[in-house]
Design a protein around this nucleic acid. Structure first.
Lengths: 215, 215
DNA sequence: GGCCTCCATCATAGATACAAGTCGTGGCTA
DNA sequence: TAGCCACGACTTGTATCTATGATGGAGGCC
């Protein structure tokens, strides 16, 4: 991993990753106008693969392409934080309801979540906030995936990306402890196959996240 | 409007519409392999806009692109009908719950739905099945839109497209009468601001649709 | 001074050209 | 005859080139 495979990935992929990362990190802010040529020059490739990347990003709702004008980084709507949280709550609670309706699936999910929770604790101990954030995301994704609905799973992944963009800044490590405690409570609710309690806990849990987002 | 603006639409858009329509209509079936050059020749355009279309279709989950190999029309998964119906039920019931929590929004939605229902009846009277199908889709979309969550609305639209592909054949006019009666019942539940009843009715309603899909 | 027009500039849309990878086929060899 | 290898047809990936539309500012007109 010493020398990154700078030219190994397809140019279109590199362009996509570059622009997407810059949008998610906030380097490219909502309202910014960016041109294909600009990115092409930056990465030393032609405009064709950049165009592909722009189209993908438009499909994902991160950009809006104006013919002959340029590409606008879609500003984050004021309501977006609310929309993301609402959708996450809906999807996660539903998945939990589906899984807890079946004893075997519940057992399998609980095992996965226990393992993930252990990972969360160790990343916090190590002070690795990046790894912790990933584990946190996995915790929730695991629940949704257990729901088994491919379409909903795909939708959920797109929600995570949007949320990352809104945060765009690390969550202070101090809150991790309390978040982990909430995750434990969520896990306990699933283990008890109590979908209603899970939904209520999730609502509180995500409300806190929402507070952070609209701070 | 005499001569259709055959070349007025952007080439990329035409390529997208052509391939998408052929997938949704079943002309291009799951498992088929198709190449950029093929579509380009068919439409008399270059590969560039066709490439755009393929990327969009891949993002929407209708195609899978294999480097240097070709584009595969993604087969309809056996579980897809179930997934679509489950997701629709989740989303529509949620929207109804949100709207009925507010008297003013409920009133506004009811007015819209009444108007749509009138349209459904008239299209059936006229025997225009295409227009009826559109009105039916609008009925459900209207409810979701009233929920006001942009992300969920977008997700819902993608679900409709997938469902169209699965049907790929007109619903016999005979069932329209009974479906309209169900729509009336759904509307009544919203009017009564009874989200639970709406959810129950919707479940039955969509179950019937599911029967058709997996016939 | 304010407004309208024209044009230089810039960005995209699409076409074309070229490079490179994949797979099946047919012939050669043992 | 069975197995292997090389070649050719086909496909995508990327670059480059041309045409066209949109914009904004300079300069003239009222």
């Amino acid at each position: 991993m010493a020398s990154a495979p700078l030219t190994s990935a397809p140019a279109g992929e590199r362009a996509y990753a570059d622009v997407r990362d810059r949008i998610l990190s906030g380097e490219l802010a909502g309202g910014d106008l960016i041109s294909e040529g600009e990115v092409a020059a930056r990465l030393g490739i032609s405009r064709t693969p950049v165009r592909e990347a722009f189209l993908r990003l438009q499909a994902e709702g991160f950009m809006k392409l104006y013919p002959k004008r340029g590409a606008l980084i879609v500003p984050i709507a004021r309501s977006e934080a609310r929309d993301v949280i609402e959708a996450r709550e809906l999807v996660e609670a539903h998945a939990a309801r589906v899984v807890t309706g079946d004893a075997a699936r519940t057992t399998a999910l609980v095992a996965q979540l226990r393992q993930n929770l252990e990972l969360q604790r160790s990343t916090v101990r190590d002070g690795d906030l990046g790894a912790y954030a990933a584990a946190d995301a996995d915790f929730h994704s695991t629940i949704v995936q257990a729901g088994g609905n491919e379409l909903i799973i795909r939708f959920y992944e797109s929600l995570r990306a949007r949320q990352v963009r809104m945060i765009a800044t690390s969550v202070p490590g101090a809150v991790a402890e309390s978040v982990i405690a909430q995750h434990e409570a969520l896990l306990a609710a699933i283990d008890a196959r109590d979908a209603d309690r899970f939904a209520a806990l999730l609502h509180d849990h995500l409300s806190e996240v929402h507070e952070v987002l609209i701070r």
